[in-house]
Design a protein around this nucleic acid. Structure first.
Length: 649
RNA sequence: GCCAACUUGGCUCAGUCGGUAGAGCAGCGCAUUCGUAAUGCGCAGGUCGCCGGUUCGAAUCCGGCAGUUGGCUCCA
């Protein structure tokens, strides 16, 4: 007999050799029906797993991450089986479960179309109906390779060859289809009742652009039909908030073909929001001891050579002049700046610094130029010219923690002010010890500074995840990540510790002992790039920006032209309080004016008719709450200025 | 850069088998002076993204380029 400890802590005894499924059945038929996989001593396994020793057991349904994962992973096998039935010469690559679904990569000489997806879905439905059991078995390495060679699956052969010598090589068979796979899977294809293939995309084999591009089919799957429908509806809703669509509709920005890709035009409304944010950021930074700088937008290549940027990132820079002269060491070559660091370092270098000067904090509203590849541009999120709330701090080792914490706190303050604090995640971006060429500095240096950064992050109690290979070439980063409406993640804010560039640029301070020493440099942004931040704010609020950021805060709507004089007085008074006001003097009905103001997402509409004119009132309509009725103008001013002051979201 | 889809008046979109472009909204004019999400009538507006090819004839078919979108790769 073996002892099985269940999730609720209860311990049950079973014969050795009992399967997980039998345990589930012994608990309840209902549980056995919805169980998809099981966590055995912390490892996710399938329900057919035989229990032969004491263990802890947690049965997983679709509501758990492990359950979802097994379910969607099985859905990807069902899709691959359908593709193989319809297109036998398709070669299988990989097909994992991902965040909201699954994909499978194929090599095939035809191009998949949306009609093909429908056909594949139909075939998948058949496979689900056939309710094929998934059977796991293992093969020794040589046999596994032979098996996949005979099947004509070169990608699978490559995957097996790359497995460690002692790896267990497992296969899953469902009817006429067998795939190399570590599992786990749900018991049979009949479980996958609600699924949808969502898109076709190209993807490089093993994520390397030097490899062949395969065709990837994305899909999603749910335990219930209505959950799938809800999910698809949610995706559609999210797309309606796409900043690229409403940002243009609401006149925040536009693009012009002959200006070029990744070079958006900020319209008056977009420019206004960015101006408000910039002033807010610069004022707050000044309060926190930052010194504002303004440095040139371009420099001779020598400046970038010192840092290593010229060698690391020349392809991504806009270098001016004849490319043939770039290799001529005597030519004078200028390049637009892709980052601010070496420019702002010159401010530090202008004087010999003492330990008494440190920490020094420099900020700059800095416009940068990066020659992003053509496929990378996206609305305002990824562009070729952007303006970042940039800053660099120089400090002594014993000041590092406090200064880093200060930067993080400033970033969190900004996020809270714009209401994005609940939408971000934190990533501790480290170097890739297996790809040292990409970085400068030694392994010892990296280990030391990453160790310090981890301590600081832990002290700050930031819930971060760690990522190898995401560091800057000169140091580790805390990246504050955010997802756009398509679920794609981007870095909004970053705080980086740099222990290498000070030395390259000869930045020193004279310490108490009279010795010249290199300071730590923190590269940081407080609210990120204004264009990107604006984009995410538009998506977060579906265009209805918080009142303190709204480009137009109040719209005055006189009912007939008799009230235009009073409207002008109201407008002047509101503007004298620093409020952003527009007046709609057109000869249109009030319902029409309200509809337009509402669609423009103006926070407050003030309807002005005879009654208001006579009583010194305004009839207030909120974009959120609708008609609030008339109130004295002074009372409205009190209300709105307080909301602006408190940055009500 | 790679894979794919898309590009028709300011915007959203129609446009069958290739026969020479149509609607709604916006704009302009006139009438209407109106109380919380669209007043009526009229007018104007397009070498169908650009370049080339096939054809008697191209928005429609083919090729190239540009831009937009999703994905991959990249992101100092």
């Amino acid at each position: 007999m073996i002892k099985v400890t269940l999730k609720d802590g209860s311990v049950k005894e079973y014969e050795a050799g009992t399967t997980v499924m039998q345990v589930a059945e012994s608990i309840s038929a209902g549980l056995a029906r919805v169980a998809l996989a099981a966590e055995i001593d912390g490892e996710v396994k399938e329900l057919s797993t035989v229990l032969d020793k004491d263990c802890s057991l947690n049965l997983l349904t679709f509501d758990s991450e492990g359950g979802k994962h097994a379910f969607r992973h099985t859905a990807s096998h069902v899709m691959a089986q359908a593709v193989k039935r319809l297109y036998p010469n398709a070669k299988l690559a990989i097909g994992p479960a991902i965040d909201n679904g699954f994909y499978y990569d194929f090599e095939i000489d035809k191009t998949f179309t949306s009609e093909d997806l429908e056909k594949i879905e139909k075939e998948m439905e058949k496979i689900v109906k056939e309710d094929l059991p998934l059977e796991r078995y293992t093969l020794p390495r040589a046999e596994a390779i032979k098996f996949m060679e005979e099947k004509g699956e070169p990608y699978k052969v490559e995957l097996i060859r790359d497995l460690p010598e002692d790896a267990t090589i497992s296969f899953y068979k469902q009817g006429d289809f067998t795939d190399l796979c570590a599992g786990p899977h749900v018991p049979s294809t009949g479980k996958i009742k609600a699924f949808k293939l969502t898109q076709i995309a190209g993807a490089y084999w093993r994520g390397n652009e030097k490899n062949k591009m395969l065709q990837r089919i994305y899909g999603t799957a749910f335990a219930k039909k209505n959950e799938l429908e809800e999910y698809l509806a949610m995706i559609e809703e999210a797309k309606k908030r796409d900043h690229n669509k409403i940002g243009r509709e609401l006149d925040y920005f536009t693009t012009v073909d002959y200006i070029g890709q990744g070079l958006p035009i900020l319209m008056p409304k977009g420019a206004k929001v960015i101006q408000i944010l910039q002033r807010f950021v610069e004022d707050e930074e000044e309060r926190r001891g930052y010194l504002l700088t303004k440095t040139p937008f371009m420099a001779k290549r020598e400046l970038y050579k010192i840092s290593g940027h010229w060698d690391h990132y020349r392809d991504g820079m806009f270098v001016m002049g004849d490319p043939k002269s770039f290799e001529d060491p005597n030519a004078e070559i200028f390049a637009l700046r892709p980052m601010t660091c070496p420019f702002q370092f010159q401010v530090y270098l202008a004087h010999l610094r003492s330990y008494r000067d440190l920490p020094m904090r420099f900020n700059e509203t800095s416009t940068l130029f990066r020659n992003e590849s053509s496929g990378e541009m996206h609305g305002l999120i990824r562009v070729r010219q952007f303006t970042i709330s940039e800053g660099h701090l120089a400090c002594m080792p014993e000041q590092l923690e406090e200064e880093f914490a200060g930067c993080v706190n400033l970033a969190l303050f900004m996020l809270k002010a714009v209401g994005l604090d609940g939408d971000v995640s934190y990533r501790f971006s480290k170097w890739d010890p297996n790809d040292k060429k990409k970085y400068i500095g030694t392994e010892e240096q990296w280990n030391e500074v990453q160790g310090r950064m981890r301590e600081i992050l832990n002290d700050l109690k930031i819930p971060y995840t760690e990522a190898d290979g995401e560091a800057a070439f000169y140091g580790p980063k805390l990246d504050i990540q955010i997802k756009n409406v398509f679920g794609k993640e981007d870095t909004l804010i970053t705080v980086q510790i740099d222990f290498l560039l000070a030395e390259k640029y000869g930045m020193v301070y004279v310490d108490r002992d009279g010795q010249k020493k290199y300071p730590y440099v923190i590269h940081r942004t407080s609210i990120g790039c204004y264009e990107r931040t604006l984009a995410l704010l538009i998506e977060k609020y579906a265009g209805a920006l918080p009142i303190w950021l709204a480009p137009v805060q109040v719209k005055l709507l006189p009912i007939i032209d008799k009230q235009h004089g009073y409207a002008k007085k109201v407008c002047d008074k509101l503007q004298s309080y620093g409020l952003r006001v527009e007046t709609d003097l057109r000869n249109e009905k009030i319902g029409y004016k309200i509809r337009e103001a509402q669609m423009e997402k103006v926070p407050y509409m003030l309807v002005i008719g005879d009654k208001e004119m006579e009583n010194g009132q305004v009839a207030v309509r909120s974009r959120k709450e609708g008609d609030l009725g008339p109130m004295p103008l002074d009372k409205f001013i009190e209300k709105i200025t307080e909301e602006v002051r408190n940055r009500v979201l």
